[in-house]
Design a binder for these strands. Sequence first.
DNA 1: TTGAAAGCGGTACCAC
DNA 2: GTGGTACCGCTTTCAA
Lengths: 354, 354
Amino acid sequence: MPAIGDVARLAGVSKATASRALSGRGHVAADTRRRVQLAASEIGYIASPDAASLVTGRTKNIGVVIPFVNRWFFGAVLDGIERTLLAAGYDLTLYNLPVSGPERSRVFEFFLARKRVDAVIVIGVDLTPGEIGGLERREKPVVCIGGSGEVTARLTIDDHGVGALATSHLLHLGHTRIAHLAGVGATSQPASVAGLRAAGFLETTDAAGLPLLADESSAGGPGAILVEADMGMPAGFAAGLQLLGHPAHRPTAVFAASDEMAFGVIRAAERLGLSMPRDLSVIGVDGHEHAELFDLTTIEQSPTEQGRLAVEVALRMLGGEGGGGGAPDPLPDSGAPMPTRLVVRGSTARPAVA
Amino acid sequence: MPAIGDVARLAGVSKATASRALSGRGHVAADTRRRVQLAASEIGYIASPDAASLVTGRTKNIGVVIPFVNRWFFGAVLDGIERTLLAAGYDLTLYNLPVSGPERSRVFEFFLARKRVDAVIVIGVDLTPGEIGGLERREKPVVCIGGSGEVTARLTIDDHGVGALATSHLLHLGHTRIAHLAGVGATSQPASVAGLRAAGFLETTDAAGLPLLADESSAGGPGAILVEADMGMPAGFAAGLQLLGHPAHRPTAVFAASDEMAFGVIRAAERLGLSMPRDLSVIGVDGHEHAELFDLTTIEQSPTEQGRLAVEVALRMLGGEGGGGGAPDPLPDSGAPMPTRLVVRGSTARPAVA
DNA sequence: TTGAAAGCGGTACCAC
DNA sequence: GTGGTACCGCTTTCAA
């Protein structure tokens, strides 16, 4: 495997000049540069990133922590991150984080703590103070997308607002018995995405005078129902069957915390012979690429764009003079929430007259 | 950031001894080892992988090349790979490969060519001879899952057999007008996954005496119809609408090259008011986690397990003495195809009597 | 069993 | 503008 010394020899210059000519740093005569570049491609020279990292302290590699690969939102974010990093000449090292357990701490205490990643992007994870502290101690910039934890840079939508908006939409249509399919941890982790969306739902129904019902089998009539489930489609389906199974207790509208859950609810409704939106209105969150196909009303966000931005922020934190401590806010719009948009489709409508 | 010299000083030993004590290579007195380990954890020492790579020539990092993150099959494979690598102390560097264009060559000629990855796992990509040659020249073991290209290690199912099996299933049920929704490139790339499945379909229908119809609007009656589309759900939906739109030309069964396509077809059928399996039978491929939810008959494979195995193979190739040239076959079962299984659900049945 | 010293492949500082 | 050289942090002979 050719090293820079070989290139230098072939081009008749010193290693130092070869390095400058190839990396573009420092001044080299145009002619010399061409000779060096020619020599390099001649022998198929490619710089060893490890050697460069060793001396510069920069790896040009970003660690990405994600709880699931196979959920649309996360995949889309990952996609945005990947493209942006690639264009910037950075590598992406992926860590598929187990919810908890020894594997999780190994990721933070070993993999991410090493000098192999310049910065870390964390997607949809509720970070513990210890995890954040460890990264800070190693002076690694951390950019979060969603999730929770006291971190300096976080890109997020207004999840509380999303919960409120979705709920208002249903209320305005005239629904008075509304269920919210919240993500797991909505009550135990109030600061999490699931928790915030649920809070938005609860406050809005409460403000509308709807009582919070103990569970889905509470007697009919107006009220708000809260159910926690995994944010995927199968769990949405199961919860949907449960929720919609008994005609007497059935809500007329469901606000699902994710589009995938909503798809599950829609299929459950179909399975039960309910017609939409006549018998049931459903609204989701995300702007899933299949939402149109399911004719699902949803609150769109742009995960790919969030991924792109997260990289930009991370790179900016890296670019700033080393520390990042006193640097000006690297977040766009002073950390304002990312935009969302209510897209009304055929899955929501006024309830059938009682 | 503490270096090994700091650990050595604190423990009162030389750098060499500290290295041996921490890495486990070479003999160190049990007592010395403890002292070193204590010192290391005392100051929060974590070895720099770059420095180690530089001297050992091993990065403990595997490059993974994937065409989409947001397709269930690929996500599931990625998941299997990730878990296995993590357990082995390896990093995963992800490359989301554009179908073609300059970005694609940059991945192969720059990112993967560097000494940053020990080996490469390529999922569902049709590799060109040039791409393979480049990797071989740099002596990087390559393990493929699906896709095509003349590579030494490839894990794959019997895609031709899958196409034949799915088709036979429909034929045995009595269907005589069958459409195959093939992946893009089925005809132009006969060795690709899409091509092989389509070939299995065509041979089987041909053997059954069904004529190949020019397109889906060919006159009714027995025949085989071949349509190419993207392997995702939206494309499946669109193709489904097209294919099933005209009652006179409608096939009674559809074999979709992927479960996601099949889901799309199912929704298209529902949208058109067709009832399944009365008016239409649908079979897919993959064993998607939502297949049960759609009551979809499918030919299951195990992407996660394939990912796990790919890592095992790659690590074995790495473990073998350097070259890999004359090493014994690192593939399990001498490269026999990975298992698949027909799972019959409610989406396939005998056709309604004509 | 342990230590001294030579690199791995680059970069960057310093002279020239 | 270019070359010499120290050094990034670690592993690994080779001697002791």
